[in-house]
Design a protein around this nucleic acid. Structure first.
Lengths: 248, 248
DNA sequence: CGCGTAGTTGAGACCATTCAAAGAGAGTGG
DNA sequence: CCACTCTCTTTGAATGGTCTCAACTACGCG
């Protein structure tokens, strides 16, 4: 795997701050192992006593929870360069199920590896903390979308959010991206039904706001979409000024 | 203010881990100043360049955002002993508005004070990190409620969550608590309308699940409420085993 | 070709909303 | 003590956005 010369985790983190030597060494340890999962595989179930976190090397995944009667809610989508599992380190058991949306490659590492990070790598600690908080803000934005937006507005929000995330990782992304989720999965993200996702997508398309060819989304009128769902990009900008001085 | 002999922040944190000397000293610095705000006062607006965080000493507050057309979503409720403003330290500008639900007392401290915490107090850093992540899980639970639950189920979820939070801070809380929010505010938490909150509350009361006397909620059938909204208490239990060793 | 999965479309039902009005307290001033 | 206002809650009736159920279409694959 020589394309890992520069891992996408390091690449993503470097977008926000120049990593010092200690941080780089600690990060390298998190990406030592590798495991492959196939589309629809479940990496872990909810309620497991599993104590691993995962760096995403390749492919999309998502975390979801079920209600007892089968209703499902997808609560986060994971892209290459993300660290998966933070929400679970605060608890003894995993709170969600992690599933591969397509074929993926993950680097598992034990929860206790963070102990070393927090002891030795202050810069990296602060960065991980900040990113975890950024995630929280993104969740809050989603909460707002779920609580107060119509189906069409939510879909607008989702595609803009995805586009913003992909642009961080890959500067060449402009207005088109591949969406490896079916409409049932999208409905479970947005708190809708697959039927209504279909109707809403069709409506957006008829208005000339987006275009679709099997699995690919093209944003035609980004500004109008952003306006209809009051979108704000949380991905590009991060305040790192309060970080402790890096130890070289 | 001599009841601050043991602050409710320290009390709350001590619930999860025995704080070492360094942690205690750092915490004391965060609670040096005090400011009073009156019911409905806005501590800060969204989009401000404000770089303060706040420890809640007394009273409830909440953070909310508005959509452009006036729709509102309350995204977090803050109780005594909480630190308010974490979601904003990742960004240059505040992302939400902070409003006092009743008369409150806050301890403001600057964002950069965290720099010292992360440099000197590893135990406290890890704890703050963990609590921030716990918050994220709580948000995820709420997201699930918003996406997949009916109005009555959401209200059940809200009151059970509040009860669980209050029990951490005050062991004497059993089945009754004061709710200093009106139905419009509750509807803005749950993504409903004030009218439907009223109807749903009345329905729950008629079924004998809860009772209300002006502003006070009493849980009559906690088990049945928990079952109808698949409630899980995230407040009582936290995994601190991975924390770095405390420096005495 | 047949099969399975995913997306589309239609009709009817339902949960929650909107708009409107009435009732219940709490506080104020005369 | 009463009239008045203000805020909050409750209730009714009509509307509407989204869901449910079901059938149909499109596509990829063995």
């Amino acid at each position: 795997m020589s394309e890992a010369a520069k891992s996408c985790l390091i690449q993503k983190l470097s977008h926000y701050v120049t990593l010092d030597q200690t941080s780089l060494e600690n990060l390298a340890e998190l990406e030592r192992d590798e495991r492959i999962f196939k589309r629809q595989d479940e990496v872990y179930q909810g309620g497991e006593r599993n104590a691993n976190l995962y760096v995403v090397k390749r492919g999309w995944l998502y975390s979801y929870t079920d209600l007892m009667d089968g209703r499902r809610q997808i609560v986060e989508i994971h892209h290459p360069g993300d660290i998966v599992g933070f929400p679970d380190i605060a608890f003894h058991e995993t709170t969600t199920v992690l599933r591969a949306a397509e074929d993926v490659c993950l680097c598992p590492f034990p929860k206790v590896a963070l102990k070393k990070v927090f002891r030795d790598a202050q810069q990296l600690s602060a960065l991980l903390f900040t990113l975890s908080i950024r995630n929280q803000v993104i969740l809050i934005d989603f909460l707002r979308a779920m609580g107060r937006m119509s189906a069409r507005e939510r879909i607008a929000y989702l595609v803009l959010d995805m586009l913003a995330r992909l642009r961080i990782a890959n500067k060449s992304v402009t207005d088109t991206f591949n969406l490896p989720l079916n409409q049932t999965e999208i409905s479970d993200i947005l708190g809708l039904t697959n039927v209504y996702v279909s109707r809403s997508f069709t409506a957006l398309e008829k208005e000339g706001l987006i275009e679709r060819y099997n699995g690919t989304i093209r944003i035609l009128q980004e500004a109008r979409l952003a306006e209809m769902c009051d979108f704000f990009d949380r991905h590009s900008d991060l305040d790192t000024a309060w970080f402790p001085a890096s130890n070289t």
